[in-house]
Design a binder for these strands. Structure first.
Lengths: 338, 338
DNA sequence: CTGTTAGCGCCTTCAC
DNA sequence: GTGAAGGCGCTAACAG
């Protein structure tokens, strides 16, 4: 308890000048003489002075922290996203408070509350797959804490978000399968209530229509994204009278689970195309033949840039309520010939 | 900018009492009359009063934040570890500042610095695979910021750490292979400089000796843990005059890479046992037959508990320089018969 | 160019 | 039981 880290006061004392002079010297304020500046800075480095962030935050009524809530970190998709977020945030001197909702709505709400009580300046969220109730997000709005959603977007009006264009991705997937002579293309979608599922479905119909193919509702089934759920969905397709020769899945994990399942069931010659393009597929013999790359790192970067921009604006004046959003292009990554 | 969140001052004003009374009422101080307490609390909840953490941190010279540096989050191993850390930290009202070193020493150093300048109360680290230089850790010590290492431990004297008992795990792996009639057991180790590699090697020799097997140095090769590195290591084993019939690998990823590699090379009947027991293996047809479970969630919990304990002590009095550490038992998880 | 002063929100003596 | 006052480290408005 003897050697606290030195404060401006200490520097001021040793130099026989006032604290405010020290403060300004360190901020390179124009009104301070070069001589004094040098003296201050010299002593500061000698003493290993470091500003007390806590005091600064307190004073400036800003924490320079942004909260990030993602469903989980173990999917490479989200891990990359985090990296993109961190890279941008650190560059601008913001700290990232990272949390996992584990895809549970309850935990997501708790986390939103925790972040709020920690007075984060802004929040980035990919909503959990359970989330159907948006009151916690509205709470943030009411507290005037800017929020940018990314990749998994709630159905709310006037929100800021960054996502990838599922419509484009789906079209790419469909085009690829059709050009590889697949005739009956099925869709294993995610939970019905998810906006992401609804978008995929819409894009699926749209995509088939573009190619003058008939849309057959019996070729669309739903998984809760658990392993069992995906297998059941797959079985449903197998039981149908029109067995598909290609399947587009909600994401790579669904595809992997299904591939595993049909292999056990000795079913062959069904091709899979999925979303996310997880690197995990590189370890598999049995991977989807193609996957829609959604550029999570880029999404993270863009979302963070947008958020920081909002924070700047907010500091300046009343935030004009213009909701900003962007849909990033996707790219179909082909793992092997169809 | 009109409606700031309410402060004690505001409550005091509305109730025509002093701020200190409000403060004490909220802390349930004994010297405050029950009536006043109730009045204060009622108004506080009505106004949605929430203490300004920043002010409290500032005042208490504590940030209630712990920094966590892990190599990456996309390995399930570390993601689980984080969950364990978060669960304990949140329970005690600490916030977790999570960072990825991406297994780069340079970034690790930067992060240590960033955490220090943010005045985190303590730090948890799993060191990067590149880290050979420990000066940034010593820096933390000098600043009296408690550090607990977990799973990947540097070779420094008197440090606190939690890890899993690689010796036990290795013995379990060897016993399992031998009881499954394997004769020539090889080891694909990680980079030589890593303490974790050195421990595995030592345990490997020890384990063979326990079973009265001869230790053959030509059956130990090294990978830099990249995919290519692992394949080269595998090839080295294949080229040896004594081709092994079983291989123990540094971790699951190495095993997966090798399995893929030998499958392409049409090599069969080499069994793999690895470390970490990553869930990713559940997706594979070609997985190691067993893996040493290292309980990352538990490690995270224990390490955090230890760190928070250290923080308590530190607040109390001079920290007795007793280095605390614990080795957790491992468990061999068998994926299929050997 | 530099010093003085005040205050951010909260806690904590000390006094009544 | 309660109030008044001071201070944590730093910034910024106001005086020179």
């Amino acid at each position: 308890m003897s050697d606290h880290s030195p404060t401006m006061k200490e520097i001021a004392r040793q130099l026989n000048i006032s604290v405010s002079t020290v403060s300004r010297a360190l901020q390179d304020h124009y009104s301070i003489g070069l001589r004094t500046k040098m003296r201050v800075r010299k002593l500061a480095t000698e003493l290993n002075y470091e500003p007390n962030q806590a005091a600064i935050f307190f004073k400036q009524k800003k924490t320079f922290m942004i909260g990030v809530i993602l469903p989980n970190l173990s999917q490479d998709f989200f891990a990359s996203m985090v990296t993109g977020i961190e890279d941008v945030a650190y560059k601008k001197n913001y700290t990232v408070l990272l949390c996992q909702s584990r895809d549970e709505q309850e935990r997501e709400k708790q986390l939103v509350n925790a972040l709020r009580s920690h007075r984060v300046d802004g929040v980035l969220i990919s909503i959990s797959k359970e989330t159907t109730d948006y009151e916690h997000f509205e709470l943030l709005q009411r507290h005037k804490i800017p929020v940018v959603f990314l990749d998994r977007i709630p159905k709310m009006p006037d929100i800021h978000y960054i996502a990838s264009s599922l419509a484009t991705g789906m079209q790419q997937a469909i085009d690829f399968l059709i050009s590889n002579k697949h005739k009956r293309i099925a869709l294993i979608n995610g939970p019905r209530h998810l906006p992401a599922s609804q978008e995929r479905l819409e894009a699926f119909r749209q995509g088939l229509w573009q190619k003058r193919r008939k849309y057959d509702p019996s070729l669309v089934v739903y998984s809760d994204l658990s392993r069992d759920g995906s297998c059941m969905a797959m079985q449903e397709l197998l039981d149908g009278k029109q067995r598909p020769d290609a399947v587009i899945t909600f994401n790579d994990y669904v595809a992997l689970d299904c591939l595993r399942y049909i292999k056990k069931a000795k079913v062959e010659d069904i091709s899979f195309v999925s979303f996310a393009n997880e690197p995990i597929c590189n370890y598999m013999d049995n991977a989807p033949i193609a996957s829609v790359e959604q550029f999570p790192y880029l999404q993270g970067e863009k979302a963070t840039e947008l958020l920081l921009q909002l924070l700047d604006k907010q500091a300046g004046q009343a935030s004009d309520h213009v909701a900003h959003h962007e849909l990033l292009q996707t790219r179909l990554v082909v793992h092997r010939p169809g």
